[in-house]
Nucleic acid binder design. Structure first.
Lengths: 315, 315
DNA sequence: TTGTAGGCGTTATCAA
DNA sequence: TTGATAACGCCTACAA
């Protein structure tokens, strides 16, 4: 009755349903899991950053994943890829022990070689905004080459020729944006040495520090591109504290549009990677992998530029 | 051997361990769960807000919960208390079907009467910053009466006598802060009608809207207290757009200290509810409840005032 | 349309 | 110190 088998008479069905609600019966998830093929659980793995759940970037992705999972009757299990997780091969044990049907690896970190373990096994796993070795593994990513191009074209069109880039450290997405951004700037006529690079680790403080160095060593730059919204906010602080007005003296734009960046003062022009949708698509993808409806997912999500307060360089 | 039973000879232990690694054996979590008493899974339930995982408030709490759970070998299952969750009594099914050993309800919403279901059952559940019916259920909360007192004393000591409060809507924590704040202001010599109230729903936009109304109808107020950091940021926008300088013309302070508020410009004086620690303590609490080592948890976490840029009213 | 038996991979118990 | 066996509660298949 409970599994909606069609061969049950309406009469017994009623009786069973009645008894169920009367006695408060609920199927035991483990007994069910033991006998069934799937567990209807997806594991979400985040990088080992301190207070990573408080990061709006990951939060947006998780919200997207959650909403899709919920709509299709799946639960989410949380994990962080810390040292123990890697050492004990938790990422594979999760699937082997059938705690989860599939794993989503959100966010990229350079050197995640353990992911190679998934190449042999047929375990369902999907990387979310996580490039790995030229796409050897299934992934869903925002279009970083496109965002780099949009950012470069926007700034160059405004007249900027000397642009600082504050990129995030040790992540492939950062590498990808970095390389593409430089290439685009050069293509659009900037000199390579006029695109100085700073490195932060995605926090406001690191963005501020990187921007201070950038503005001190290259006071001639007229714009800064920051690899995420928080580093952009840090760059704003740095610029203010060094007496540069924004956006009149210095334009700052951010990558990964998040409400925070929109609400900042000045309102940041940003490349919008719709992280919520990215999460939804990833959740959908891992489920098709689980069901073996497809075997390869290499999907690139579109990107748009949201222009708020940016101006050209001071004459 | 695998369960570290002491009565095993060193010899067989080695042999078994060897075979295990050779054949890649992993215990099936469902079979184990079926036979064992506990599942070592804790469910975390968040309120049904849009993109709730992207909210730093909940993120901080989850980070604390996660870190403690991880240290004690527990997994976290995510849930959102949406309409279906309540209608189908998922909150109780989770435990009944033994998907989780215990549930943490994070964040408060007025009218969560379904939580009453936990009064009868002996199911382990713990409310986190979630007051319910005068503490009928186990809970761990930040000390909102204390934070209201700290905020009032700080502002009154600076000379403020007319203070706007922008509180969050429909949450008991907001009620609690609201009532205590008013009482404290009156105790410290303010007139009741000089503490006008605005209501937001925790977003920057709603804080901005509430602050605009407040500043238009009561231009005589010299300070604003906002129920969270984002509404405080909104209030800053509103004040700026209406030509008030901060903190010279108008002091703004926030509740629930989060890096974002610290990094804002001007840097907000805030009441620091250490949400990460709150999460850790909650995780610890639910586990003692699960193990039946205690039956009642009514814990109040200390609070501190972090003074950044606030000044007294303009003479 | 309904009842019954066997198996899923553990843990716990009892006998050897 | 070890090996054998009965639950655990569900699903599937087959028999009634």
């Amino acid at each position: 009755v409970l599994n909606n088998n069609a061969r049950i008479s309406e009469d017994t069905r009623k009786k069973v349903l009645d008894a169920v609600s009367r006695m408060g019966y609920h199927p035991d998830s483990h007994a069910r899991g033991l006998a069934a093929k799937y567990t209807r659980v997806i594991s979400v793995v985040l990088p080992p950053l301190s207070h990573v759940f408080a990061d709006a970037y990951f939060g947006e992705v998780i919200s997207g994943i959650y909403d899709h999972a919920q709509e299709t009757g799946h639960k989410l299990l949380l994990d962080v890829a810390n040292e123990r997780f890697v050492r004990e091969r938790e990422y594979i044990n999760l699937l082997h022990s059938r705690r989860a049907d599939g794993v989503l690896f959100v966010g990229s970190t350079v050197g995640n070689t353990y992911l190679l373990d998934f190449l042999d096994t047929g375990y369902p796993c999907l990387l979310v905004n996580n490039f790995f070795e030229q796409g050897a593994l299934n992934h869903v990513v925002a279009d970083y080459p496109a965002s780099a191009r949009l950012a470069a074209e926007h700034l160059v069109a405004l007249g900027h020729r000397k642009i600082g880039l504050i990129r995030g450290e040790l992540v492939q997405t950062g590498d990808c944006f970095h390389q593409n951004f430089i290439a685009q700037c050069v293509r659009l006529g900037c000199a390579l040495q006029d695109i100085p690079i700073g490195v932060g680790h995605f926090s406001e403080a690191s963005g501020q520090a990187a921007a201070e160095i950038l503005l001190r060593t290259r006071p001639d730059i007229t714009a800064i591109v920051a690899g995420n919204d928080r580093m952009a906010l840090g760059a704003i602080q740095a610029a203010w504290s060094m007496g540069r007005r924004i956006p009149e003296d210095l334009s700052i734009i951010g990558v990964d549009d998040i409400p925070q960046a929109a609400g900042s003062r000045p309102a940041l022009t940003t490349v919008r990677h719709d992280l919520y949708t990215l999460g939804r698509v990833a959740a959908e993808g891992i489920m098709t992998l689980v069901r073996k409806e497809c075997t390869a997912i290499h999907r690139v999500m579109p990107v748009e530029l949201v222009v708020r307060e940016t101006t050209g360089p001071t004459a």
